[in-house]
Design a protein around this nucleic acid. Structure first.
Length: 254
DNA sequence: ATGGTTGGAAGCCAA
């Protein structure tokens, strides 16, 4: 038996409610992470799932849908009590710590948005360090807003100077790997040209001008249990789609 | 292509 765990930035759950429901119906994952809810409340998406979420007006917002109960652990990233952006959710589910993130975009690079991104990533690293010191297997999934490598974007030169491809953000992503976490997609599939996001503008989708910024990072115990990983490009081709598409992993249930 | 598109808000901002 395996657990199927998916992540999808829906760019407004209100605008994408039908898509979310249709995709849940067809894929029936055990867990679904959603990002960019863009509202204070999250509508009831499916009676088959337990819903945990943290939201705010207009921006951000993350949800974790689970088959069966999940226990809320944290609804914000520790260290900054003044940070009110809804970007982090941590729950326990069937012996696994599930962490859903919507990591700050950070553009433009010469503003406080970028420094906020970098500080947020350092706080996440500290949280990873705490979790690594513990015994609970954990995974971090979501929209990282980081292009890890040149092969994760269609044209590296076009992304030079962008916060998603900045040396600082890529370095901090590597620091997570150095803490022992495994980029699930790179374990199974080493091909270039596999993306999770295509801009709405300039025909990025039909030209496949995408980037891989939605990830699952697995703690060592979970990395050993990884069975498959794939990106489902189908929903990006639907009418009035999100600019992101789901990434799905399967892990053995022990 | 110093453009282009989308969503939520409110008469622009974030992505």
């Amino acid at each position: 038996m395996t657990y199927k765990i998916a992540s999808w930035n829906v760019n407004s759950i209100k605008a994408r409610l039908d898509h979310a429901r249709a995709w849940l119906e067809s894929e029936s994952p055990d867990v679904l992470f959603l990002q960019e809810l863009k509202g204070e409340i999250c509508p009831d998406i499916s009676p088959d799932y337990t819903l945990n979420f943290v939201g705010q007006k207009a921006y951000n917002g993350v949800a974790i849908l689970t088959k069966g109960a999940a226990q809320m652990v944290l609804d914000h990233l520790p260290e900054d009590d003044l940070d009110t952006q809804a970007r982090y959710l941590e729950v326990d589910w069937r012996g696994v710590r599930l962490i859903n993130i919507y990591l700050p975009n950070g553009n433009p690079i010469d503003t406080d948005k970028f420094s906020y991104k970098i500080k947020w990533m350092k706080r996440l690293l500290n949280r990873i360090s705490e979790l690594r010191a513990g015994a609970v297997p954990f995974l971090i999934g979501g929209d990282f807003n980081v292009i890890p490598d040149e092969k994760d974007c269609y044209d590296p030169a076009a992304w030079a100077g962008d916060a998603l491809f900045s040396p600082e953000a890529r370095g901090l992503f590597r620091a997570m790997i150095h803490q022992g976490l495994v980029d699930a997609y790179r374990v199974i599939d080493h091909q270039a040209g596999a993306y999770t996001f295509w801009d709405y503008q300039a025909g990025a989708w039909p030209r496949n001008n995408g980037i891989r910024i939605d990830h699952f990072l697995l703690s060592p115990l979970l990395a050993d249990r990884l069975v498959t990983v794939r990106i489902d490009k189908t929903p990006r081709g639907w009418d009035q789609p999100s600019d992101h598409t789901p990434i799905i992993i399967e892990i053995s249930d022990e």
